[in-house]
């Protein structure tokens, strides 16, 4: 799979978050997205995951057949997508059946994350770090070429962070892509870095596509008198 993003712009509640983001990823490549809080790291991941509509710009994928972008990716963020009332195994079995292209058994995936004992425990009984590891085990139960990781090391101890770095290296070695929004480029030291800076206020970069809210901004002041 290959992914290219051109001149992406994002706006939330009328506020410009970022403009003019471009990057391209080839098989085995990873991208570490950095930037201060509120710079739009999560917004970029949400756009890639298809949850947020970009304000301008294009996202292209290649070499994935007929699949659409959301069908090619795993997203792990601070909302872990786990149901507290179900056991870790049930959560993973559900994800496996829902997402398709099944790989590891839930029990094996949990064991890989050091959570073999938690297979039959309701997620409600697990700590924040353990829940995050269950969510990461989802990466292993189905194959998806692109991993979108939002602060993947949050709540993880040092050993688990090393394990995550190992998993990411394996995924990339198998031709997978990773986009990670992170403060700490653990395991992605060789990855390209995309630093999102706040857009310069007042200086609208001329965008190749018109920006929807420009209509509200650019109306002549005399018209309003």
């Amino acid at each position: 799979m290959r992914l290219s993003v051109e001149e992406l712009a994002c706006r939330r509640s009328g506020r410009r978050v970022f403009t003019g983001l471009s990057f391209a990823l080839r098989p085995g490549e990873a991208l570490a997205v950095t930037g201060r809080n509120g710079a739009g790291k999560s917004s970029l991941l949400a756009i890639l995951a298809g949850r947020l509509r970009p304000d301008a710009g294009q996202i292209r994928v290649a070499d994935v057949g007929e699949a659409s972008l959301p069908e090619c990716l795993h997203a792990v963020g601070h909302r872990d997508g786990l149901k507290a009332a179900l056991t870790a195994g049930e959560n993973l079995a559900f994800a496996r059946a829902l997402l398709g292209d099944a790989r590891m058994e839930p029990r094996a995936a949990l064991a890989r994350l050091g959570l073999g004992h938690a297979h039959d425990l309701p997620v409600a009984y697990l700590s924040a770090g353990q829940r995050r590891r269950v969510a990461l085990a989802r990466l292993l139960v189905c194959h998806r070429p692109l991993w979108l990781l939002d602060e993947p090391t949050a709540a993880l101890d040092v050993a688990s962070q090393a394990l995550l770095a190992e998993l990411m290296a394996e995924h990339r070695a198998a031709g997978g892509l990773i986009v990670a929004a992170t403060h700490q480029a653990l395991g992605l030291e060789d990855a390209a870095t995309l630093a999102i800076a706040a857009p310069e206020p007042g200086l609208d970069r001329p965008s190749p596509t018109p920006d929807r809210d420009a209509d509200w901004r650019d109306a002549d002041v005399e018209d309003w008198a």
């Binding site: 995951a49 959301p70 069908e71 795993h74 997203a75 149901k83 994800a95 829902l98 997402l99 998806r144």
Partner: peptide, 14 residues
């Protein structure tokens, strides 16, 4: 929507 399961579902090939 709150716990992110909806994001998981929107990534399903359905």
């Amino acid at each position: 929507d709150e716990d992110g399961s909806l994001d998981l579902m929107s990534a399903a090939p359905v």
